[in-house]
């Protein structure tokens, strides 16, 4: 279990532009490694675990799939907890919707795990202490944040994928996340399914780079993640 301080350092790192010499030097500085260890660090890039205990998403398409797997782990863990500790006043319809979404997210998580096989990152530890699972507004507010973030993450990751098959798989999932996002938003405020906080003047949804997404998700993911080997274009 990492200390809070080291977790904060990871989050700072995730907001840096990845895979540059500058950020690598910074990274070495943060974790106090000497330059003599550089070669060791560099050769461990494709493994799931860095020598410093961070989970390394990897590079190329595998890295992007692991990135998606990380986000699906977060969503699945969240909705699993939502269903195991239903908020007060939940309606039967809301419970049915949230159970469906839980199933979809668990299916996504398990799909990535199975598809990635030995390349899959391990299970991530999550921390939802900032969410009041007994409170409808808190739960739906978190759900909205997760779903909108998921949509923006997949939209931003599409261009980083090389294989058309993987791109299609991401496409099959992102539209389901968008359906979730719209529903959750409507449960909070009917008609907000695609309001101007997520859709711009060109009618386009959000898209975010992995660094931005992981910085936001870092609030809830305890396990330190190294995303520095992800493709950037």
């Amino acid at each position: 279990m990492p200390t809070q301080k080291s977790t904060d350092n990871q989050l700072e790192l995730l907001t840096e532009s990845p895979s540059t010499q500058v950020s690598r030097r910074k990274f070495l500085g943060y974790v106090g490694l000497s330059s003599a260890l550089l070669a060791t660090v560099a050769t461990s890039c494709d493994k799931n675990d860095d020598n410093d205990g961070r989970v390394n998403l990897g590079s190329g398409d595998i890295g992007i799939l692991n990135y998606a797997y990380a986000l699906e782990q977060l969503e699945a863990a969240f909705y699993t907890k939502v269903i195991s500790s239903l908020y007060s006043g939940i309606t039967a319809t809301e419970q049915a919707y949230l159970t469906d979404i839980r199933d979809h997210e668990v299916a996504h998580r398990e799909f990535f795990k199975a598809a990635l096989g030995s390349s899959a990152i391990p299970a991530l530890e999550v921390n939802f202490s900032s969410i009041d699972f007994g409170n409808r507004a808190s739960v739906l507010g978190a759900a909205k944040a997760f779903e909108d973030l998921g949509v923006a993450a997949y939209n931003g990751a599409g261009k980083l994928i090389v294989s058309p098959d993987y791109l299609l798989l991401a496409g099959k999932i992102v539209s389901v996340e968008a359906r979730h996002a719209a529903l959750i938003r409507d449960l909070i405020s009917n008609g907000s399914f695609a309001d101007n906080t997520v859709i711009d003047a060109n009618g386009l949804d959000m898209q975010k780079a992995p660094s931005e997404v992981l910085a936001a998700a870092g609030t809830y993911i305890v396990t330190p993640i190294n995303a520095s080997n992800l493709p950037t274009s």
Binding site: V151, Y154, N155, G158, G171, V174, S175, V176, E177, A178, R179, H180, A181, A182, L183, D186, F193, A194, I199, G203, L204, D205, M206, Q207
Partner: peptide
Amino acid sequence: LQIHSVEARHAS
């Protein structure tokens, strides 16, 4: 992709 997810929100 940014249009694609908007259409999915509409459908929802």
